[in-house]
Nucleic acid binder design. Structure first.
Lengths: 333, 333
DNA sequence: TTGTACGCGTTATCAA
DNA sequence: TTGATAACGCGTACAA
């Protein structure tokens, strides 16, 4: 049937022969109490399976003991490790995680933000689609940390895929490639802007020509659909905005019996599914789970009254060479 | 800087010239009030940007307006669509979603359960590792819905992969296969028990011999590692516990230059990554997102005082034939 | 170091 | 239909 009522601070106090404040302190400010008292109270609390009621605590302190993470699509393999990292960090600090999925729409992002902002002490916004103005306004109402979005004055965790992209271009250059296609992601995406700019500038430094393909959504299907254009472009290598798109391109090439890497090389980004692609895809790897941990750590620091605008955290990336890249011209391109 | 303090029920009451109870009712029980009063209060509330404080409401009513979803590993592609479905349903009903990741350990599952049970009105437990006894005990303390676990008396949503497995065996039988390997998942997994039993019985009905391989974890790496044993077994087809394991097997076969499906056929389960595998993998498909929605709907119904033990929801599956299965013997096995 | 007493914002009970 | 008031469980001045 229904549940027994959980023990309250008063019952513990009576059972332990102390006052309610002592019980409270045993949990929230143990350093104010003698070690012996803390020990006693904790033992009794354990026996009675006492767990502090967060609603009551929240009402009293104004802090929820929870943060919210808002992602554009939990099914995107980039977000799984990110959420995992956030989860782990929060679990360590005994903070709850509220999850929101915007389904890639700005409207839902706004609604969710409004709803969650009241329930959480802070929000991690990953891959936001809202405008700079909206985000800035929001950041004045609730502690906010951005992931992969650059916005002065708002704490953020950035994954420096640009450096990895340069490494990727150098790798291709060393293999003799001189004609490179870039398959972009969403136009509003900060990550895409970074990646595309890095590819373009690195390529021009190496004397490599870049064709920027026409694409928006970073999906498997979009990757498959890009293949004809890629072949037309006569590029000998493709760098994709992310692994999902890259894997789609690999799939499309496979269907068309285009040999990878003999006829064309392919590089992905994020290293989420690259290792499982066929052929195993060369990709720019980042520690996404760490990014999640850092985002959570940053947010919790702000929430707990630390630095209002900490320096951005920038995480390094590096190229992992696998089987989808090789010397140009094995097949006469 | 920080945010202005939000308006409270008392300020609205004063501004609207009514009592706090009236303001409260205007939001939670408008039918008790005259239309005019409701209108007045709501207007004033709007002007003052009043939003009810959920912590206070929770403290008073004992209801949190949130449910928790506990998964064993958010990075497993099975859980992403599940969480998505839950999220969607909860969002529709204005309920918040708390996320917990047990990292596949029973200990963390227990801790998390204890922690979240207090903060949520109910819990969805997906792929639990705890014992029947523990789960039963818990279900007496808080509304609980299981996903893919059979336990009498506890509301549950089950994906009937057994039927799909029989379909898969029939498919292989029709292709002439007579020697089949099954690559299992976790021994404690209800899903694995279902799948393995279905494969075994369906195969024996078709006169197909089944070799059950030795495996526990459904990971890509485990799939790769299974390949030598699979080849030794001289099976002409493999059915994997899930897509991830199946994709690993495909990868291992590819590395060993074993042709799929000419030399060996491979079938996955869940259809999470099957379509993106190479070759595109035949798999048993289920609507996991729907499972999530149903789980959330079931839980919310129970929470809201409906049926204490609703009938289990059982979702159908079907085989999706792709490129990883073909007639036996193209290469003399 | 510990206890007393009040307030956090809301809903429920009871009375008007 | 509306209002006054007592909980809900906890944290924290303030007092001891």
């Amino acid at each position: 049937m229904s549940s027994r009522k959980p023990a309250t601070i008063r019952e513990i106090a009576r059972a332990a022969g102390v006052s309610t404040s002592t019980v409270s302190r045993a949990f929230s400010r143990p350093e104010m109490l003698s070690a012996a008292t803390v020990e006693t109270v904790r033992r009794v609390a354990d026996e009675l399976a006492y767990v502090p009621n967060r609603s009551a605590r929240a009402l009293s302190t104004g802090l929820q003991g929870a943060i919210a993470i808002i992602v554009s699509d939990i099914a995107n393999p980039f977000f799984a490790p990110l959420v995992r990292g956030i989860e782990r960090q929060c679990d360590n600090e005994d903070v709850l995680v509220l999850l929101g999925d915007t389904d890639e729409t700005v409207a839902k992002e706004t609604t969710l933000l409004a709803k969650l902002a009241r329930q959480a002490d802070g929000v991690i916004l990953a891959g936001p689609r809202s405008s700079d103005e909206e985000i800035t306004a929001l950041s004045e109402q609730i502690p906010l940390v951005l992931v992969n979005r650059e916005l002065a004055g708002v704490p953020r965790v950035l994954i420096d895929t640009a450096t990895g992209m340069r490494e990727a271009v150098a790798h291709l250059s060393g293999l003799g490639h001189r004609r490179l296609a870039y398959a972009p992601g969403p136009a509003e995406s900060w990550s895409n802007a970074q990646r595309q700019a890095a590819v373009t500038s690195a390529a021009s430094e190496c004397g490599i020509e870049v064709i920027v393909l026409d694409n928006e959504r970073p999906t498997h299907e979009a990757g498959i659909a890009l293949v004809p254009t890629i072949l037309e472009s006569r590029a000998t290598a493709v760098i994709a905005f992310d692994d999902v798109l890259g894997q789609g391109i690999l799939a499309g090439l496979g269907t068309g019996a285009v040999a990878v890497p003999d006829q064309i090389s392919v590089i992905g980004c994020d290293d989420t599914v690259a290792a499982r692609a066929f052929p195993a895809m060369t990709a720019i790897a980042a520690d996404i789970e760490l990014a999640g941990e850092q985002a959570a750590a940053t947010l919790l620091a702000v929430v707990r009254g630390g630095d209002e605008s900490p320096d951005p955290v920038v995480l390094p990336t590096h190229l992992v060479v696998r089987d989808s890249t090789g010397p140009v011209g094995a097949s006469g391109n």
